[in-house]
């Protein structure tokens, strides 16, 4: 072999080795990038598709479909809109109902306020069950048979002592319905509604719209869109809540 041929061969081999190194790096980089991208976008797509978007809406839903009006037809002109954001598994919401529920319902029945309940379901995520959404679906179904307020109260008064125990299907579709006074043909309608899960999209929507409006914890009370901080509420004299609401 002459030295010039050897030199040419050497250069060719060096170039090939360099090319091989480059190919190796590019392939590894592209493979890793592709894997990560597929994982990310695949997850976003799949999880997104799993969210129900069924379109049944309770008869007394707000026009924004972000909650249910407790006292439809009652509010006098110009009555303040009072929104209560609750999760059916939230223990503080149960205490809140116990303390302020009577005042709110009294004002609602007199038409002094438009009372709305906005159901949230984030405790399902925290507690890793599905009781909040199922209770929310059941409550939405109870509105279609005219027993929303009663059913709502029944769920809270039967909330399990231990957060996370949740509600059984039998409780939601039979026991609570009976306590709330849903009977006969109404009971059949209610149970069909619950079984079909047709309200799931609506309840997911009320949760998302609540988050979107900045409500990240329950209970939250809003009057005409403004939050009344829980610590400023007259816990020891709940009747004062009336003045507080009418003054704001």
């Amino acid at each position: 072999m002459t030295s010039s041929r050897r030199e040419a061969l050497r250069r060719q081999q060096a170039a090939q080795a360099k090319q091989k190194r480059l190919t190796r790096i590019v392939i590894a980089g592209a493979a890793i990038a592709a894997l990560v991208l597929v994982a990310v976008f695949g997850t976003i797509l799949v999880q997104g598709m799993n969210r129900p978007t069924t379109a049944s809406v309770p008869v007394n839903a707000t026009s924004a479909k972000d909650g249910i009006i407790v006292n439809p037809g009652k509010p006098v002109a110009g009555a303040p809109v009072v929104q209560l954001f609750v999760d059916y598994q939230c223990p503080v919401c149960k205490s809140f109902e116990g303390i302020f529920g009577p005042t709110l319902k009294d004002m609602a029945s007199k038409g002094e306020i438009q009372l709305e309940y906005h159901t949230m379901t984030f405790l399902d995520t925290n507690l890793r069950n599905d009781s909040s959404i199922r209770a929310g679906i059941a409550a939405a179904c109870s509105d279609n048979v005219g027993k929303y307020s009663d059913y709502h109260d029944t769920v809270f008064s039967n909330q399990p002592a231990t957060e996370g125990t949740g509600y059984t299907t039998d409780q939601l579709r039979r026991e609570f319905a009976a306590t709330a006074g849903i009977t006969g043909a109404d009971l059949t309608t209610f149970q069909q509604c619950y079984d079909s899960k047709a309200m799931a999209g609506f309840v997911n929507g009320t949760n998302d719209l609540a988050s979107k409006s900045g409500v990240n914890s329950t209970p939250t009370l809003k009057v005409n869109g403004k939050v009344l901080e829980n610590k400023t509420l007259p816990t020891s004299n709940p009747a004062q809540l009336r003045d507080l609401i009418l003054a704001s």
Partner: peptide, 17 residues
């Protein structure tokens, strides 16, 4: 709000990767 869902899904995957 609409970006929170994709980001919430993507972050854990990106962290693991």
């Amino acid at each position: 709000f609409d970006l929170t869902r994709p980001l919430g899904y993507a972050l854990p995957i990106i962290e693991v990767a």
